[in-house]
């Protein structure tokens, strides 16, 4: 269908056959492992081990960015916040959806490498993954929406209930390192597309993700401090005090509007590609939910 529309479009307006002019931020070398941050920002040594963060850095207004906000993750942050309420609701919803046992089967049975598992443990660390039933690479939230639809429930991608179930599933992988393989197959393609999108300048300000998140990490846009793209996908969906429970794609949508272009629907192909790229940059970093960010 998609290709058909492209072909029709090109036939109807030959001018479109030319590649539209777009600019790209000069590409850096990205490593599909969280330790690649050492080459980009050099702060990896400060937040490598979430159990051994430096308390003095966390309290320092000029140096706290070096922790990449990991001091807001468990176990350093033992505060109660709204992410815990979402986790509780996620458990209730999961049990309701999984009354017949088919919801959990739907989640685990299409895992990569044909591995069939009966437990949720470690499931979060393998997403985004190629799903043979959907015939595309999909994030965990998209798969939850799909599997809930099979149980005749509506859990739209990005909605509170969807993120709550996602937090509950992620909590079953707490402390296990993210592990997606982008060396071959559909995930390799998605990684490449995601890397290109990460550098593509778009919108009202002609900016790309890389405009800020490469080379300017630690600098501020008024009160907003720019974070490293490495190690950032392990704590989503996250509780943010201004926006509530925020899945990664909702975060992308907020970024899109801030940068000056229309937000895409959560689960759209471009967002999933960027999710694959960012999740690969988090490879090797432990899952930490529920978490909070400003």
């Amino acid at each position: 269908m998609r290709n058909l529309i492209v072909v029709l479009g090109l036939l109807l307006a030959p001018a479109w056959a030319d590649e539209p002019y777009k600019e790209y931020t000069p590409a850096e070398h990205f490593e599909p492992h969280v330790s690649g941050d050492s080459q980009l920002t050099g702060t990896y040594r400060y937040w490598k081990d979430p159990t051994k963060l430096d308390l003095r850095l966390a309290g320092h207004p000029d140096d706290s960015w070096k922790l990449n906000w990991k001091h807001l993750d468990y176990p350093f942050n033992k505060e109660m916040h709204a992410g815990h309420l979402a986790l509780d609701r996620g458990l209730v919803l999961f049990n309701k959806l999984n009354r017949a046992g088919t919801f959990k089967n739907c989640l685990v049975m299409y895992r990569l490498n044909g591995q069939y598992e009966t437990t949720l443990r470690g499931l979060r660390t393998h997403f985004p993954a190629y799903r043979t039933d959907l015939r595309r690479v999909a994030g965990l939230e998209e798969v939850i929406e799909h599997c809930a639809a099979l149980e005749s429930e509506t859990l739209q991608n990005g909605s509170y209930d969807n993120s709550a179930v996602s937090i509950y599933i992620a909590s079953q992988s707490l402390g296990m390192p993210i592990k997606i393989d982008v060396s071959s197959g559909p995930l390799r393609e998605a990684w490449k597309r995601g890397e290109r999108l990460f550098h593509q300048k778009v919108g009202r300000n002609n900016m790309s993700c890389a405009s800020c998140h490469v080379g300017r990490v630690g600098q501020s846009l008024r009160a907003t401090v720019v974070t490293s793209p490495y190690g950032d996908a392990a704590h989503y969906p996250v509780y943010r005090d201004r926006f509530g429970i925020t899945s990664l794609h909702i975060r992308f949508a907020q970024c899109s509007l801030d940068l000056g272009f229309n937000a895409l629907k959560p689960g759209s192909p471009a967002y999933t590609d960027v999710e694959v790229f960012l999740t690969a940059l988090t490879n090797g970093y432990p899952v930490s939910v529920p978490s909070e960010r400003p």
Partner: peptide
């Protein structure tokens, strides 16, 4: 994001950004 809901709400944004190329 509406609390305790399975649906995502879309509300008007302060500016019209539709003329600009999007991330795609």
């Amino acid at each position: 994001v509406k609390v305790d809901s399975g649906r995502l709400e879309w509300v008007p944004y302060a500016m019209d950004l539709s003329p600009w190329p999007t991330l795609c």
